[in-house]
Design a binder for these strands. Structure first.
Length: 120
DNA sequence: GTGTTGACCACAG
DNA sequence: GCTGTGGCCAACA
C-alpha cells in the first residue's frame, strides 16, 4: 500500500469506490462493509485526512482532471444529511445533483430510496 | 504511551 | 422536526 495511506484508509476507499452512480451510502454502511460496524467515525476521519491523493499532489476527492477517484460525495450521514466535505458541503451537493440526487435543506431528497443498502 | 480531534451513529427528550 | 448525550474507532500531536 502507498506510503502515508493506512490499511484502514485503503479499505474505506475500496468500499467507497464500489458505490454505483446515482446511489449513496452512509459512513456507517461503509464501516459495516469493511467489518468495523462501530468505526463510522473513523471512516469519515480517513476520508477527510486523505481522500486518496496521489503522492505528488494534494488533490481531494476530485483529481486534477476532474475525474472523481473516490466518490466521497456519495457518502453521506445516516440521516441523509450531507455530513462533511473537504471542499465544502456546497460542492458536495452540486456533485450529488450531477448524479441525479437532489439536495434539499442540506439533506438528500428520497434519501432512503437512493441509499445503496437500506438501513434498519 | 497518552490525550485530543473529527466528513459519525444511536437513543432519549 | 431539533437538541443534547454517550459511545465507537483510527489518526495525529
Amino acid at each position: 500500500m502507498k506510503p502515508g495511506v493506512t490499511f484502514f484508509q485503503k479499505l474505506v476507499y475500496e468500499a467507497t469506490r464500489k458505490i454505483p452512480k446515482g446511489r449513496v451510502a452512509t459512513y456507517g454502511q461503509i464501516a459495516r462493509f469493511i467489518d468495523n460496524p462501530k468505526a463510522a467515525r473513523a471512516v469519515g476521519n480517513a476520508l477527510n485526512r486523505n481522500p486518496f491523493a496521489p503522492a505528488s499532489t494534494r488533490n481531494r476527492c476530485l483529481s486534477n482532471r476532474g475525474k472523481p477517484r473516490v466518490p466521497c460525495h456519495r457518502v453521506v450521514a445516516s440521516d441523509g444529511s450531507i455530513g462533511g466535505f473537504a471542499s465544502g458541503p456546497k460542492k458536495k451537493a452540486a456533485l450529488l445533483k450531477t448524479e441525479g440526487i437532489k439536495v434539499r435543506k442540506g439533506r438528500l431528497v428520497d434519501f432512503s430510496k437512493k441509499l445503496l443498502v437500506k438501513i434498519r
